[in-house]
Design a protein around this nucleic acid. Structure first.
Lengths: 246, 246
DNA sequence: CGTTGAGTTGACCATCGTCAACAGGAGTGG
DNA sequence: CCACTCCTGTTGACGATGGTCAACTCAACG
């Protein structure tokens, strides 16, 4: 396959590649993802390792404790990351949005489970191949490290939420936090999409589904939000921001 | 300063260095810390950047949001890492033991505060100099990344504790977790040292000091632990492990 | 039109937080 | 040496936040 004319963005033409493979040069989340650290030549190397994968709603990408064969870069959809206690209690440790990387630790086994909340697309890399690439490309490793420490920072913020906030503050900080994350990937909208269920939100915030429901209802009654089928519209963001910061 | 005879360990002789500086070759925590990734020559480079620092009880190493001038490698003592909400509520996000690294993210500002629980010694590195060294030594970066993802994993475990466990389970998992961390740095002892106050434990577990106290008292009454001045002795570790895993 | 699953709402209750009193050790000063 | 304060930790009584259990609504789907 011959080189194509220079593409729209600053990057060079796309790389030679087989059918059904990834097209990084036209990837909408590239600049927000770990791949953003690579130049056009390196991007071709990465592309050669990548495999486009799709997951239907409720399909599991991987399970806690299972050998980690691959790492993923989410390009579309939302993934729920969680741990389960022996008696069935569940704690959601995060939601991966487009641009997020799964498998930051490059460890032998996954330390949590991940499944698709709606339809999800992700670039899959064999863990060994990706690890080898990291050894060759220190700036990619540096980028991965930045992503890991960003995740760590989010996790520490969430520890504050889980340990020291009331139910009302938890829900408010969840909405504000999610709005800000959507904004970073330019999904600007007055409505914050909530593709996850109430149970998911509850398991993320350390609450029950009833408490989440009651709290959202109260916010709606007090005209702070408007609940719509796909999510919530923030009518009084300042009120929520104050609760989230308090 | 001429090279000294080969030292006791496998490492080469110590490096030329000024008085009052760090002696990495004889550092007891080196192999457990990020420095463990370096060979004897590189260790000398690192040593040249290091500055030995000491902190008395209750002294602050750094404060949340303040510009991050330095990163630290703890060599002695325990450091409390925490975030404070505007109204004074505090969440401790971790305890740094000897061998732990503070400033994994290499970011412009600290995202949490850190202060010495007892007397603390730490190697201080200027952030800029350390960051430059990381650019030269990819395997050091890789090591730092491993430490970061290990921290991330601990944070995620703690999210489960904070979000989904009862007071009794929280205290049990705290004791077991701390015992295992002491064990990794070969402080083998029947007694788990608890240099932090009850208030610190409470703020780590998302409880009140009274609940922590009551729970420890109950464990003691049921002969699961013995409370001693410096910490607790685990009389029935299996009982606690089961609670922590449940 | 019946079934299913997600979400909402209400009544009741338990765990854990709040408030308060008390105990014991360390440091200080008469 | 003892009285005093200060600080940390313990214990008890009570109460509120959020959990539990159950009924109900509503939309999707056959």
């Amino acid at each position: 396959m011959a080189a194509l004319p220079a593409s729209i963005r600053g990057t060079q033409a796309s790389c030679a590649r087989a059918r059904g493979q990834v097209d990084c040069a036209n990837c909408k989340v590239r600049l927000f993802s770990v791949c953003g650290a690579l130049d056009s030549h390196e991007l071709c190397e990465l592309e050669a390792l990548a495999q486009q994968t799709s997951f239907e709603q409720k399909i599991t990408l991987f399970t806690q404790d299972e050998p980690a064969g691959a790492v993923y870069n989410v390009t579309e959809g939302v993934v729920r990351l969680y741990k389960i206690l022996p008696d069935g209690r569940r704690q959601i440790i995060g939601f991966a949005l487009p641009g997020d990387f799964l498998g930051l630790s490059m460890a032998d086994r996954y330390t949590f489970s991940a499944d698709a909340i709606g339809p999800v697309k992700a670039c899959r890399f064999s863990r060994g191949a990706f690890s080898d690439l990291l050894d060759e490309k220190p700036h990619l490793l540096r980028r991965l490290h930045e992503f890991a420490t960003h995740e760590l920072s989010l996790a520490q913020d969430q520890m504050v939420v889980l340990g020291r906030r009331t139910a009302e503050e938890k829900v408010a900080s969840f909405l504000i936090g999610l709005r800000d994350r959507w904004a970073r990937i330019s999904k600007v909208s007055v409505t914050v999409p909530l593709p996850m269920s109430r149970q998911d939100i509850a398991d993320f915030l350390g609450l029950t589904i009833e408490t989440v429901s009651r709290t959202l209802t109260r916010f709606a009654r007090e005209r702070a939000i408007l609940v719509v089928p796909e999510g919530v519209r923030l009518l009084d963001p300042q009120r929520l921001e104050q609760l989230a910061a308090a």
